[in-house]
Amino acid sequence: MKYTEEHEWLKPEGDVVIVGITQHAADALGELVFVELPEVGTEVEKGEEIVVIESVKAASDITAPLDGEITEVNQDIVDTPTLVNEDPTAAAWFFKMKLKDASEMDGLMDEDAYKALID
């Protein structure tokens, strides 16, 4: 698993990566009440705001971790936003994407580096 400074995790699965938010991010946001995901097939650029999430406290954006194309989104978290608070690193993944350049994964943080960031 790799991590971004925006508190996203990326997990390779075949020729795509699964993307979600970390437990640390989910805890900081508080209970989620609304999630809006991008359309499948959307070409996204690193840093582009592609997901809107709202918690009981505030609205936030989630950005594309790397360049690529959205291949699948998780309707379960749209239907039940609090799933993100319950299981952010497995059942409550956000979207899957095919990276433009798979080697860019190497530039992201590993678990130790991410832990150091949030400590």
Partner: peptide, 8 residues
């Protein structure tokens, strides 16, 4: 602003 029970 909240306790461990959470806002909801």
């Amino acid at each position: 602003v909240q306790y461990p029970l959470g806002v909801m």
